[in-house]
Design a protein around this nucleic acid. Structure first.
Length: 346
DNA sequence: TAGCCGTGGGA
DNA sequence: TTCCCAAGGCT
């Protein structure tokens, strides 16, 4: 069954929808999967170059499963939300070991893989296999919240449930790939967060928010909270051969498992930093050269990054520690690095 | 359930 | 400059 809403979206999609995105070319389950993970909370224009590089290096799920996590992280470096890459790699190994390399075709099996939730699983089976499944990404949430004038912030379970019901009800039995792309394209191209292009909208006749003349009021916005300010010394330590000291961060928390500069307590005075290097890193260093701090904003707090340059005089007591390594700039840039650290490396 | 997890673009 | 938030999922 195809209701009026879906019919209108499909007709609009045929004329205006996006059909030439990189993952539309050979839309295998593997390629759709990788694209959907990259696109979580990330805009299309940001994803495209990452997707192309990733697919060139890991063209199949077997290639991805066979790679090291470190190399996968290197290809993800700069995209953010690094748990996505870890889960992607873990899931690839599961697909190879438990499903014989064939990406599972059932939505439930797909959703059981790490990093794949209800909406992503639906997007994969709909786009790769043409199975009827409702998605509810940020675009669909905005379109449906406006069309049905659903009040409240979609982060609340009751609001999300209501949107899911609308999503299920509108999803047609036929042309699932087109409809899935259509509702996302409408949200991204017409039913935008600000200044929506209602004049070009194929469903404005039925849209309750349009009828109320306040589409921008939907969906309800997230309750705002104060972001705390944190601060840290970032120790940029270079030895006599132009190598930089990097260490692996703890597996959980911000930039979990990525390589980064050693950090020091911001309560320390700059002149105390060489002693800190001696005790914490077993390093004899020259005088510290502090650089201009800059503020890096995360989802939940601001971090003042205070870079300090030091030159290592001796590099003893480091060979045994697998979590720390001296790397030249070029090889460091191939590792999985957080964006600001990559920037500091220059 | 609410907090956590990145980055870059738009206004 | 500052704030919001984008093809969400996990704990």
């Amino acid at each position: 069954m195809t209701d009026w809403f879906a019919e209108q979206l499909l007709q609009w999609y045929d004329q205006h929808g996006r059909k030439d995105l990189p993952w539309h070319r050979d839309p295998s389950a593997y390629r759709i999967w990788v694209s959907e993970i990259m696109l979580q909370q990330t805009q299309v224009t940001t994803v495209i170059p990452y997707f192309e590089r990733f697919m060139e290096r890991f063209p199949t799920v077997e290639a991805l499963a066979a790679a090291s996590t470190d190399e996968v992280m290197g290809y993800w470096s700069g995209l953010g939300y690094y748990a996505r890459a870890r889960n992607l790699h873990k899931a690839a190994i599961t697909v190879v070991e438990e499903h014989g390399g064939a990406f599972p075709a059932s939505k439930d099996l797909i959703q059981a893989l790490p990093g794949i939730g209800r909406s992503t699983a639906a997007a994969i089976v709909a786009q790769a296999h043409g199975q009827r499944a409702a998605i509810l990404d940020g675009n669909a949430k905005r379109v449906l919240a406006r069309y049905h004038a659903v009040e409240g912030w979609p982060g609340r379970t009751a609001v999300a449930n209501e949107l899911w019901e609308h999503a299920e009800a509108h999803t047609p039995d036929e042309r699932i790939q087109a409809y899935t792309q259509a509702i996302m394209d409408l949200g991204a191209m017409v039913c935008t967060r600000r200044r929506p292009g209602c004049a070009a909208c194929p469903v404005r006749e039925g849209c309750l928010a349009y009828g109320r003349n306040n589409p921008e009021a939907y969906p309800g916005s997230k309750p705002k909270k104060e972001k705390p300010e944190k601060s840290v010394w970032m120790l940029v330590i270079e030895d006599g051969e132009g190598r930089i000291l990097l260490e692996q961060r703890p597996p959980s928390g911000i930039w979990g498992g990525l390589m980064s500069f050693p950090e020091a307590d911001p309560a320390l005075q700059p002149e105390e930093l060489p002693e800190h290097c001696e005790t914490a890193l077993g390093l004899e260093t020259s005088e510290p050269e502090t650089q201009e701090p800059f503020r890096h904003t995360f989802s939940h707090y601001h971090l003042w990054i205070r870079p300090v340059r030091l030159t290592a005089i001796s590099t003893r007591a480091l060979q045994d520690d697998r979590s720390r390594s001296w790397l030249h700039r070029e090889s460091a840039l191939e590792a999985g690095l957080p964006a600001p650290i990559r920037r500091l490396l220059g």
